[in-house]
């Protein structure tokens, strides 16, 4: 099967992910997604893994320093030289990360950007450094989300901040997806979107588990003391029968 037809079949076999934050769970499981991605040839599988390794949080979390992340990004950008859209995607994602890292550093009390070339990436490093005291690093007129992110960080609203950053990343993916319908780039964009939806659904799961634990604790505190052996002991006695 030629690449063109293979990608049409693959993309058509992947379910619609819906709008961001609209799904409580991913429409396709990781296992099933991996099964579908077997339609890719080995070279493309390798490139996909490389792009994911630098764009998904799980990939960069394994690295020790920001400089390692920057090096990895440069390696991946070189590896996908045949796909300018993917290069652009990785670059823009790294630039977004640099802006968020700068916001965090400033919130943490850093008085200047320091040597931004060791922890930052991309076009905006000098601008961030020169406009350190500006809420949007002098980029608010074309990236209004930075001022919003700055406000959320100051308020300590981490959930809203996460939503905002994921929305921005989703928007970047949408922009690239507009010109790629049935090709390798479209597959990569789908997988990156899936990663974001899956990450958000995991957060929801954790929040639900925490809430459930709190409710159980509350219920146990208010429950009356009942006579007789503990429930676990009764089950153990009944089991052999």
């Amino acid at each position: 099967m030629s690449d063109k037809f293979r990608y049409i079949t693959l993309i058509s076999s992947l379910p619609y992910l819906g709008k961001l934050f609209s799904q409580k769970s991913v429409p396709v499981s990781e296992f099933r997604l991996r099964e579908r991605l077997k339609m890719l040839d080995d070279g493309h599988k390798d490139l996909l893994e490389k792009v994911i390794s630098v764009t998904a949080w799980a990939g960069v979390a394994k690295l020790d320093t920001d400089a390692d992340v920057v090096r990895l990004a440069e390696t991946v950008i070189d590896a996908v030289h045949e796909y300018p859209a993917l290069q652009d995607l990785v670059r823009v994602r790294m630039e977004t990360r640099t802006i968020i890292a700068a916001l965090r550093r400033r919130q943490h009390g850093d008085q200047s950007a320091g040597d931004i070339h060791t922890w930052g990436y991309g076009r905006w490093r000098t601008r961030i450094s020169d406009n350190w005291s500006d809420p949007s690093f002098g980029m608010g007129h074309f990236m209004p989300w930075i001022a919003e992110a700055n406000g959320l960080m100051r308020k300590g609203d981490h959930i809203a901040m996460e939503r905002l950053s994921l929305t921005e990343v989703f928007r970047q993916l949408d922009r690239q997806a507009a010109t790629h319908a049935f090709d390798f780039e479209a597959v990569v964009i789908y997988v990156l979107r899936w990663t974001i939806v899956q990450r958000w659904s995991t957060y929801n799961g954790e929040a639900a588990a925490t809430r459930l634990r709190k409710l159980i604790d509350q219920a146990l505190k208010t429950a009356p003391d009942l006579p007789g052996p503990p429930l676990g002991a009764t089950q153990q006695e009944e089991a052999p029968a």
């Binding site: 099967m1 063109k4 037809f5 293979r6 049409i8 079949t9 693959l10 993309i11 058509s12 076999s13 992947l14 379910p15 579908r36 049935f182």
Partner: peptide
């Protein structure tokens, strides 16, 4: 037909 058929086969998987 090959282009449309490829999409139809993919859609049937999902």
């Amino acid at each position: 037909c090959a282009l449309g058929g490829s999409a139809a086969i993919g859609a049937m998987l999902d």
